[in-house]
Design a protein around this nucleic acid. Sequence first.
RNA 1: GGAGAGGUCGCCUAGUGGACUAUGGCGCCGCACUGGAAAUGCGGUUCGCGGCAACGCGUCGGGGGUUCGAAUCCCCCCCUCUCCGCCA
Length: 449
Amino acid sequence: MSVGIARLREEPDAIRKGAVDKGEDPSTVDAALAADARRRTLQGEGDALRAERNTASKSIGEAIKAGARPEGPEVAALRRRSTEIGDRLAAIDAELAEVEATVEDLLLRIPNPAEDDIPVGGEDANVTVRTWGEQLPHDQPLEGEIGADAPAGGAVWERRPHWEVAEKLGMIDLARGAKIAGSGFPVYMGQGSALQRALIMWFLDVHTRENGFTEVWPPIVVNQASARGTGQIPDKEDQMYVVTRDDLYMVPTAEVPVTNLHRDEILEASELPIRYAAYTPCFRREAGAAGKDTRGILRVHQFDKVEMVLFERPEASSDALEWMTGVAEDLLKRLGLAYRVLLMATKEMGFTQARKYDLEVWAPGVERWLEVSSCSNFKDFQARRMAVRYRPEPGAKPELVHTLNGSGLALARIVAAILETYQRPDGSVDIPPPLRPYMGIDWIPAPVA
RNA sequence: GGAGAGGUCGCCUAGUGGACUAUGGCGCCGCACUGGAAAUGCGGUUCGCGGCAACGCGUCGGGGGUUCGAAUCCCCCCCUCUCCGCCA
């Protein structure tokens, strides 16, 4: 269902290695193969019995039509034969259903193997592909600092973390967010809210006007089939908020509803590539991360994100990933935020991806790199789960498409990076140039008090 | 939430228990005709699973059931449309 039983049969070693490299249990591969072999045997037996029963049933119809009495002994004998086949069939079908469920369940738990050139290992194995921009220092002398009103005289200016900047300017209220929803649900107010809105609009405008994306405004809850399609179930089920009463899941990213747009569809080659850009709030329980990044808005349960989703022909997906990563990088350049691009190692890249780049911006206030985008190629992995196919040529057999997605970009951490990068010694904050038309102001003045 | 009408292989459509491959049309693919095209004619055209193959099996919104046999009869669910109620 995910890796594909055909590939599993052809190259079990590669799939096993892929699982090991990602830190998953490779024994599912052998279990799946064994169950699949049993499945095929049972299907063969079942099909043969069904074929027998079909001919038997037909002969009943023909006998009656030829003049035999429907209640006569001749027809009764034929009926007994057919019933007997049906009984045997029921036993086989019962086992078959069980085995099929086993195969499907096992296949859903086999991860997508990383591409061959992906470094094997954990965080230490990630490769920094490139960096851009000046990595601002946390402390710097006030001389030569931006702003004519900067006080002179050897003093050192210390960049403040974003939560301090935002709180002083009335942009973010974490305490009240905790009161009305819980910890990790920030409230954006005043220019904080306006900044969110400006970022969302600018991102979407760049994608639709410059990069050929179609804008999508999807539901922010999805059903089980959709959550399974993109691989959130069963792999990341405990990270999602669930609306149990209606059996719905709050989306952890727009990837889920948008990629599922074409679930169970056969696309024409002429429609590809399909490029969608969608803004949604994103909901994540962050189970297992309690106590991590508790200050500020670096790790929250609800944040906002514009997501890019691509449907590509298989031969085009590798180039498309590089292109899409470039689109996200361009946004960071125009925002004037220093960043680096990481090629993620096998254990860092998650269950469904074949290749993943993370974009991290430098936040001089907290002196950390913050992940603001993740651009991935899933190849045919999600497409198989969702049955998204295309016809390479008119009239040709359908083949699986390749799907990709990337953040463009995730807001909460971008806001943090902007506040820490663009703050000035007097407590005011400059607005990055691309956002000024959307905000209607060039900078946010320091608080009067 | 209540009442009713529907859901057939890309689109439209026939089909109320057994007929060979589930009709027919449009579209699409191939061939013929043509200098090339249009028009026309002939053939093909759901999707999936198993099989080296011949071929077999499944698939009529989804899931159960009745029957020797279900697109067709029964039950549950989903979706669409109409009306009523409620409502941003």
